[in-house]
Design a binder for these strands. Structure first.
Lengths: 357, 357
DNA sequence: GATTAGCAGTCGGCTTGCTCAAGTGCTAAC
DNA sequence: GTTAGCACTTGAGCAAGCCGACTGCTAATC
């Protein structure tokens, strides 16, 4: 091929065929019907006849970008075709109308509740992309204790509340070995606060191994519990919030063929969360298209997602899921915007230094 | 009718027809296929011929307990038929095998996190009834503050954490009007703790109206924020956890006819939570069958639910949702057991007296 | 060599007509 | 009140046939 092609994903496509492929994908995304050469010639100013388009489409099929439901049918993008489209659309910004206002209306910073933010973000995203949206709460690679509090419940039970550096709360019941008053518990908490503030689970373990508790049973119990609570490795995955399943199910693929049951299984199963675990670096919007996914259950779908949060700090993931025929341009823009928006909120909760008393 | 009938819901049914109706409903629940007179005669020891059964079924249809999909088809229970069955089945205990062990394995008291309990409970219930399960967190009619904590974040922002009497946590960012150290914040928190511990939102308002803050801006801000956080009226409804949508969608009604999209709409919409708002008194298992529901979207489904929690204390709701042809006996038993189990956990978090320092 | 017109051929979707099995309603007998 | 027997209804399943949409191919044209 004499002309060098801009996109490495489409090494041997001349410019016209690249343009054609893009049109085919975007038309199919819009109409959900196999696109035929005649329609293409009619609806777009291609300056070539349907016959030429047919020749080009034969070539695109040969190269795996599109496929046909049956011999005498129009073209339908295959996963590589969508991939081509996605890489081309990365630069473009296609935020839905009034999306920014809707985001600002839905998400309230002062709530100070990352879970509530995630919930609202999922709702806004779902209605923007007309598909399922998922947002997780934030979680940091290395969690540090900020402050702890012990609340006496009754008899020999107390509630340990640990505030982590990213303003996350964790709690657990502790059983006391002797009757202890709230005042005593408060004193213990104050002492421990001075000592372990800013520590990670690993550092707590080191302290623990140095025989620090000195035989005091309550302190020993507390230390162990705090260590467990702050140990990210042991914690279950981030909490996830879903919204917009009905939007997704109203997509035409679910009227004919695609099984809603399989989609529901993706939710009951934890496929999406596992996809999210391999989170991209901030500001990157990742797109997993159909068969590209490592998750069996997710193969019939595409996921567009991004990490939000503070660099080297607490991060969460927000994304949209739908049939492979989804509006990638819109989804990528919306996810990018929301991730940036949530990042701002989360960063405002971060301490300005690693630790400050 | 000479013989008085036990059940007021079936005033003019003789004993044999009551028994027949019960068999029809339970057979249909099991097989999901219209039940015919022959099959009834064959599979159950009825000691009457199919012709007699047909006559009885004609009567049952006349009275609205069953209906027929078409002229020459077997009988299908209608909502009043299910209602009859449910009232008869109330007494019976039909816990799924090993259900109690599964519950105990799934729900960890020491987690001390009512949200985690609700999540696990929903999962267990869903797999037991093969349908969708919903559990909400607890919420009390009158919330009382137990203890508060103020954590300095950075510059002029701090995180206010309020522990409520039922061990629920609430949080909000507060903006300080001047640079304040963590020590100062801790002192303020300690002072306020002594003062407002055990107070409800209403009592806080009274205190506030008495001009208590004395012009101190931080205290004024805190008081107002605490009041908002503890005011149940303003809080959004209980948080809900769902599980088992795929179980529900694998029920035969969704293979043919029933729309998965409508079911998903029930989730995105908040119909179930609204049903739950009218919660039964503890220990009562409520069953809403199809058209009985006030919620438009819920009409094609049935919901079995119960309140759990402490009497006059924090309460939540747990329930199962499925097509009207659901295994009511099993669902009622499972819900009853889970509600009792969760109640124990929640009550263990309750203070033994209205307030204890 | 690329593009185009024309045309035969293919295929899915839809309708029609048919049969079959299941199950009822009715009537008359017990 | 119960039962046997029989005519009748209905949906499901299947095959045939038609229609429209669209392609692939060939030969002519730019």
């Amino acid at each position: 091929m004499s002309k060098p092609t801009a996109n490495p994903a489409a090494p041997s496509l001349n410019t016209r065929r690249q343009a054609l492929l893009e049109i085919i994908v975007s038309d199919y995304i819009e109409t959900a019907a196999p696109v035929s050469s005649q329609q293409l010639a009619r609806r777009y100013e291609l300056r070539v006849s349907p016959a030429t388009i047919r020749n080009d489409m034969a070539e695109l099929e040969e190269m795996g970008y599109i496929s046909r439901p049956h011999t005498s049918a129009g073209g339908v993008p295959s996963d590589p075709g969508y991939r081509f489209y996605v890489e081309r659309a990365r630069q473009r910004n296609r935020l839905p109308r009034h999306f920014q206002e809707r985001v600002r209306d839905a998400i309230d910073f002062d709530e100070a509740d990352p879970a509530a933010w995630a919930r609202s973000a999922a709702r806004v995203l779902a209605s923007a992309v007309h598909n399922l949206a998922i947002a997780t709460t934030v979680k940091r690679a290395v969690a540090r204790v900020k402050q702890l509090q012990i609340v006496h419940l009754h008899d020999r039970e107390a509630l340990l509340v640990v505030v982590m550096q990213d303003a996350q709360l964790r709690q657990r019941i502790i059983h006391l070995d002797s009757d202890t008053t709230q005042d005593e518990l408060t004193q213990i908490a104050n002492r421990l606060n001075r000592l372990i503030g800013g520590m990670s689970a690993a550092e707590l373990r080191t302290l623990w191994d140095s025989g620090f508790s000195g035989g005091n049973v309550i302190i020993a119990t507390l230390m162990e519990t705090i260590r467990v609570l702050s140990d990210e490795e042991r914690r279950e995955t981030r909490e996830r919030y879903l919204n917009g399943l009905s939007h997704m199910l109203s997509q035409p693929e679910f009227q004919s063929g695609k099984s809603a049951h399989d989609a529901a299984e993706v939710l009951d199963d934890d496929s999406i969360t596992r996809i999210f675990d391999d989170s991209p670096r901030p500001a990157e919007v990742r797109v997993v298209i159909g068969q590209e996914s490592h998750e069996e259950h997710l193969r019939p779908y595409s996921v567009v997602y991004a990490t939000y949060g503070a660099p080297d700090g607490a991060t969460g993931v927000i994304g949209a899921m739908g049939p492979t025929r989804m509006d990638y341009a819109r989804a990528m823009s919306s996810v990018r915007y929301l991730a940036a928006f949530l990042s701002e909120l989360v960063q405002a909760l971060e301490p300005s230094q690693p630790w400050q008393g």
